[in-house]
Design a binder for these strands. Structure first.
Length: 97
DNA sequence: GTTGAGCGTT
């Protein structure tokens, strides 16, 4: 198990600092990032947070998952590493059709 | 509005 949290259901107005502040109320945030679409520089509506320990990650999930933020329902869960997804793992990142 | 990048041609 890791300490990385996936945070979905974010408003497009939420940014990394907002995300960190939200989770910091329920544990020690080591890092937080809202994923921005690199083509539009706007939020994709989800992000990632890393807590100091798994224990704090768990309580952050329990406290924030299913709640609302900036008018949207939050989904909080342990994340999986991006390398685990076949879409961008080494061998070809960009589509070439 | 649901799982993060960019490098560059293996």
């Amino acid at each position: 198990m890791n300490k990385k949290l996936y945070v979905g259901g974010l408003s497009y107005t939420v940014t990394d600092a907002q995300l960190q502040a939200l989770f910091a109320s329920h544990g020690t945030v080591e890092s937080a990032k809202v994923v921005m679409d690199r083509e539009t520089d706007r939020s994709r509506g989800f992000g990632f947070v890393e807590m100091s320990t798994q224990e704090e990650a768990e309580k952050a999930i329990a406290s924030l998952n299913g709640t609302q933020h900036e008018g949207r329902s939050l989904t909080v869960n342990i994340s999986k590493p991006r390398e685990d997804r076949p879409a961008r793992s080494g061998g070809g990142g960009r589509d070439r059709y």
